[in-house]
């Protein structure tokens, strides 16, 4: 078992994948670290502001279809079988 990560829009372009199976991570922070290790700088640029390690405000992450817990945010725990969606919401009309 592992965690399934689904990429959308620009994240799909950065990773070249629609989804990835990730093992050995237990929360959002460790998942993002592992994704950057695996997919490199192109993905890091999409995820984080260039100067800081802060997640860009354009990044929306849902775990099993639920937004990250307000209180736990990046410490939101992950377990085998969880599905994480990473997408940049668009705004125009």
């Amino acid at each position: 078992m592992a965690i399934t990560v689904k990429f959308f829009a620009g994240f799909r372009e950065a990773t070249g994948k629609r989804q990835a199976s990730i093992e050995g991570v237990n929360n959002i922070t460790s998942l993002l670290d592992e994704l950057v290790r695996r997919f490199g700088e192109k993905l890091a640029e999409q995820l984080y502001s260039s100067n800081t390690r802060e997640l860009r405000k354009t990044v929306n992450i849902l775990v099993n279809g639920r937004r990250l817990d307000f209180l736990q945010e990046f410490n939101t725990p992950l377990k085998d079988g969880d599905e994480v969606a990473i997408f940049p919401p668009v705004a125009g009309g």
Binding site: F8, A9, R12, E13, R18, L62, N64, G65, F70, E83
Partner: peptide, 20 residues
Amino acid sequence: LIFNGMDMNFDEIEVNRDPS
């Protein structure tokens, strides 16, 4: 539903209600 015209595909993201 997410439409990506660049690759020309549609995808679905599951969304559940946040109880809070």
